[in-house]
């Protein structure tokens, strides 16, 4: 019998919520174990091995030491999967890229002398693909469990996963939600990649764009819609800062 691929799960700067989503697959985790051996997954097991084929990596890269560790993971793994918004695009960790690292350290730690401490040696936040090549992306904050499963099965079957390139509105309409704009709110759904089953608007919370923008918020007809709903460009810029600070529309292959 063919040997099962060995999988390792790692994290960088993040809340570990996406890893928790994997753990939350519950009995389906057993299905996963039928096709793969999990050799490292700090959140759910004590064992660790550096011998793995597939690395599933959560979190953003904040420091030279992270970068070094990620490169080492990349060297070990045949396939690298970016898990969740922090890993796929920097996500909330990029909010701080509005300021220089020195300013951020000073704001949080005041005058404490942290010189020479590599734990506090931060640069501007990077997504994984700004450091190493990424083979597969599981988008979202947190990830959608079904999409995680479809990416994993695609890897196992050696096919390209079917990740939507259309906006959240498509799934939101299928769920028969009242449009956030009609409710007097506003929403990044029209310019955000679908695949989350429009979970936020379905629970009456506007889309924050955690799966990446598929259109440029600066141009692409957003202006006309903002005017029609009496919203300012500043509103949408602020909303985009949450997950998409400094990011243009995502590339087709992500």
């Amino acid at each position: 019998m063919k040997q099962k691929p060995r999988v390792a799960v790692f994290d960088f700067a993040d809340c570990e919520g996406c890893e928790l989503e994997i753990a939350d697959l519950e009995e389906e985790v057993l299905d996963l174990l039928e096709i793969a051996d999990v050799v490292s997954f700090r959140e759910v097991m004590k064992e660790h091995s550096d011998d793995y084929d597939i690395a599933i990596v959560e979190g953003s890269i904040m420091r030279p030491m992270d970068e070094k560790r990620l490169r080492s993971i990349r060297n070990h793994a045949k396939i690298l999967v970016a898990l969740g918004a922090c890993a796929t695009m920097g996500g909330v960790n990029k909010i701080r890229n509005q300021w220089m690292p020195d300013e951020v350290i000073k704001e949080v730690y005041g005058d404490t002398n942290l010189k020479g401490n590599e734990l506090f040696d931060v640069f501007q936040t990077k997504a994984l693909n700004e450091v190493v090549p990424v083979d597969y992306y599981v988008h979202g904050c947190p990830i959608d469990r079904d999409e995680f499963k479809s990416v994993i099965t695609a890897i196992a079957l050696g096919k390209k996963p079917d990740i939507p390139r259309y906006p959240v509105c498509v799934e939101c309409k299928k769920n028969e939600n009242i449009c956030q704009f009609e409710l007097g709110s506003f929403c990044l759904g029209p310019i955000t990649r679908a695949g989350c089953k429009a979970i936020c608007p379905t629970h009456n919370s506007p889309c924050e764009g955690c799966r990446g923008l598929i259109k440029k918020a600066e141009t692409d007809c957003v202006k006309e819609v903002l005017e029609r709903y009496k919203l300012s460009y500043e509103d949408i810029r602020r909303r985009c800062t949450m997950y998409n600070y400094g990011r243009k529309e995502c590339s087709y292959d992500e």
């Binding site: 259309y166 906006p167 509105c169 309409k173 029209p190 007809c221 819609v225």
Partner: peptide, 12 residues
Amino acid sequence: DVCMECSSCTMV
């Protein structure tokens, strides 16, 4: 030029 290509029109 102002279409957001969201396909809401066809969904509903």
